[in-house]
Design a binder for these strands. Structure first.
Lengths: 105, 105
DNA sequence: TCATTATATCTACTTTTTTAGATTTGTAAA
DNA sequence: TTTACAAATCTAAAAAAGTAGATATAATGA
């Protein structure tokens, strides 16, 4: 459960993965919430893989792999509901990392 | 002159390079300043490549290359005096990076 | 000038990461 | 149950990063 700076640096050392962090920071700015609301959900649960993949333009397997990388670094967490997996930021880790950079780097 | 987060994440996504950042944060804790003082220098100018290389145990060419990578990310700056090149942290960039992580990540 | 030392650059090999197609797994709907 | 869809995993090829020996450059001292 401990935050691992090296894993986080590696996860963030890729432009698209950084981009995904930004998209998930303000999903309403980058994705359409309508279909989520229709299902009784909202972006608090995260954004599903397919939406992220479509926005990225990369292959499904690549995005799935990127998201797994970011989850292993615990920058993201995921929840499966029905056929969909929703990814959202893990703000706790992000805060810990930010504090690590501030005090330890 | 602008701080580039992606270059910085890449530079830090390697254990030895992270280690070097730590060594250069408190050189007096990890290196012997005597020979520097004898030359009218101190660690404020930085630590020379040979000392960093000896401590790392890696090949000279590898360390030279690592230091160049970190300098390109502007995490480090260097100064040549005679035969020696001294590397020190660029605290300005480090601060900017820390603020970037805090506010933008 | 010549030899020595410190560092950077060049070169080649190895390892890791990126990338994407194909397959598998899990879920839901027909 | 079959079918369809979303996402994860498998596989393999291409690109990038890591590694270290050899060579080049730059400075010093004999």
């Amino acid at each position: 459960m401990g935050m691992e700076p090296l894993l986080i640096y590696k996860a963030l050392s890729n432009e698209m993965r950084c981009q995904i962090m930004q998209w998930l920071k303000n999903p309403e700015e980058f994705f359409d919430e309508k279909l989520y609301l229709q299902q009784g959900l909202n972006f608090r649960i995260g954004v599903c893989v397919g939406d992220i993949q479509a926005k990225s333009g990369l292959a499904q397997s690549v995005i799935s792999n990127y998201l797994a990388t970011m989850q292993k670094a615990s920058l993201l967490e995921s929840e499966r509901i029905g056929k969909w997996t929703y990814y959202r930021r893990n703000e706790k880790t992000i805060k810990q990392f930010s504090e690590y950079v501030q005090t330890k780097l």
